[in-house]
């Protein structure tokens, strides 16, 4: 039953899934990082309080986060077509993935940045650090272990979303599971995709944990 064609199919699915996950994680991280930084510095006890900016962004992030992913994916189809020229395949999946994941990633990063000791921020201010210098030289490096940990969480969550996207034209392992497992009752293929997804999640998470530990200088 596991003939060469099938192995080939699973292999391609795995590569596609990893590709979508990594690309989406990257872009979600970039957008999430910008949003998180704005949230952290504009909050009332931040280094550049801007109540209006904070409220607007805060509500926007919450709104996007409360959209169920499948609905969001369908809702943004016109936008997806405009960005990548198509609504099926890997690249078309990346667009809604990023839109769905960026606010979530923004919250993760925001949490990490807020864990940075306020005293250290204050010390930097007392030394005459500018807002940018505090972001680049204090917030990011001091939050590094937590940020790495968060990015592993982000990647595994996005992996889950990408599998879901198989239901509405996305590629990768999710598509295989739906095509063979759901539409053709080939439970063995479904089983194989599930195992592969679990393995990818495990690898991502273990790597994330390892990198987090390795980068943290707080435990001697």
């Amino acid at each position: 039953m596991f003939n060469e064609a099938l192995v080939e199919l699973l292999w391609e699915g795995t590569v596609d899934t990893i590709y979508m996950t990594l690309v989406s994680t990257f872009f979600s991280y970039v957008f999430g990082m910008v949003m998180a930084m704005v949230l952290v510095i504009t909050r009332s006890d931040g280094i550049r309080p801007q109540p209006v900016v904070f409220r607007v962004l805060d509500v926007l992030v919450n709104l996007t986060r409360s959209f169920p992913f499948l609905i969001l994916m369908i809702a943004v189809i016109p936008f997806t077509r405009w960005v990548v020229g198509t609504t099926i395949g890997n690249n078309a999946t990346v667009v809604p993935l990023v839109i769905a994941a960026a606010p979530f990633v923004a919250r993760l990063i925001e949490q990490s940045l807020l864990e940075v000791d306020k005293g250290v921020i204050e010390a930097a201010q007392s030394m005459g650090a500018s807002t940018w210098q505090i972001l680049w030289k204090v917030y990011l490096p001091e939050a590094r272990p937590s940020l790495i940990n968060g990015s592993a969480i982000a990647a595994t969550t996005i992996l889950g979303y990408s599998a879901m996207s198989g239901a509405v034209g996305g590629g990768g392992l999710g598509k295989l599971a739906i095509m063979y497992g759901y539409n053709r009752y080939q439970t063995d293929i479904m089983f194989a995709t599930v195992v592969l997804l679990i393995v990818i999640v495990q690898v991502l998470q273990s790597f994330g944990d390892w990198a987090t530990r390795k980068s943290d200088k707080r435990n001697g």
């Binding site: 000791d117 204050e122 980068s215």
Partner: peptide, 11 residues
């Protein structure tokens, strides 16, 4: 400025 909790960059 120096502080009670030292406020060093831990990383």
């Amino acid at each position: 400025m120096i502080f009670q909790q030292f406020n060093l960059l831990m990383q």
